[in-house]
Structure formats: C-alpha cells, structure tokens
C-alpha cells in the first residue's frame, strides 16, 4: 500500500474508467482487437492499482467476492459454454448461435461469448488471487 494522495484520488477515477473499458474490450473482442484475455488483464490491473493505493482490505470490499471464487466461476462459465453443445449432441465446445435481424444488421449471440466471459473472469481471479495474497503478506 502506498500512502499517496495523488495516487488515491486518481485511482478512484481510474478504477471505474478502466473497468468500463475492460468490459468494452471484452464485448467488442469478437469483431475488433480485444477479448477475454485482454479485458481480464485490464480489469486485473485496475484492481491491482486500487489495492496499491488503498490496500488489500479495501480491494476485498470492492471485489465483494474472493478472487478464487471469481476464477472458479470463470472456469464454470467456460465449461458451461462447452457443455451446452455437448448436451445438444455436438462435440464439446462446439459453438451455438442465435441471430436477430437481417442483412448487415444481424446481431449474433452465442456460446463463444459466454466462453470469453469465462476467460475474462479466470484471468481476473487468478491475477488478483496472487496480488492479494502477496499484499496481505505483512498485514
């Protein structure tokens, strides 16, 4: 934890901005540069920054859930995305899609999105598990 007023003030603002950005990166990843890995890393850095500014205890309050649980939920999302097709009789992890609209204005949503959300959560969870455990070392 760094006791710096500038860092703390900036972090308050940056955390929400970076989190918002990470969601944006996650969701647009299928069509533009981005995706679960990148989004997850951005969100993780945002939280890590917060923990440097305010300490691990504050970060745990912000996170609500233990990072290990976040990683676990991420794994479950990714596996669930795969099981969906397995239940439908296809090979494990075959993508399933729903489409709305016509022509160029089609909106696609499918299991790869759930899978990418899983990747996103696992990266956040794993990174923060390590960061928090290290930060809490000499508390």
């Amino acid at each position: 934890m760094m006791d710096s007023l500038i860092l703390r003030t900036a972090t308050r603002l940056l955390l929400s901005l970076m989190l918002l950005f990470s969601f944006f990166i996650l969701l647009r990843g299928h069509n533009e540069p981005g995706g679960g890995f990148i989004g997850g890393l951005i969100a993780a850095s945002a939280f890590a920054l917060h923990s440097i500014a305010f300490g691990p205890r504050a970060l745990r309050t912000v996170l609500v859930f233990d990072p290990r649980s976040i990683a676990g939920v991420g794994m479950l999302c990714a596996i669930a995305a795969g099981l969906f097709s397995a239940v439908m009789g296809d090979a494990f992890l075959t993508a399933g899609w729903l489409h709305w609209g016509e022509g160029d204005a089609v909106f696609h949503v499918g299991t790869p999105l759930l899978f990418d959300v899983g990747v996103f959560l696992v990266v956040i969870g794993a990174v923060l598990t390590i960061v928090l455990a290290l930060e809490e070392e000499d508390v």
Binding site: H30, N31, E32, G34, G35, A81, F115, D116
Partner: peptide, 17 residues
C-alpha cells in the same frame, strides 16, 4: 464463427479446447 477478429474467433471458437 460470426466474428470479424480472426484471432479472437480462433481463441474462443475454433480452438476453444
């Protein structure tokens, strides 16, 4: 794969395993 970012489609669809 209904995605324009080929890298991401490889990651989450073609080679998701």
């Amino acid at each position: 794969g209904f995605g324009r970012n080929v890298v991401n489609v490889i990651l989450v669809d073609f080679r998701a395993m």
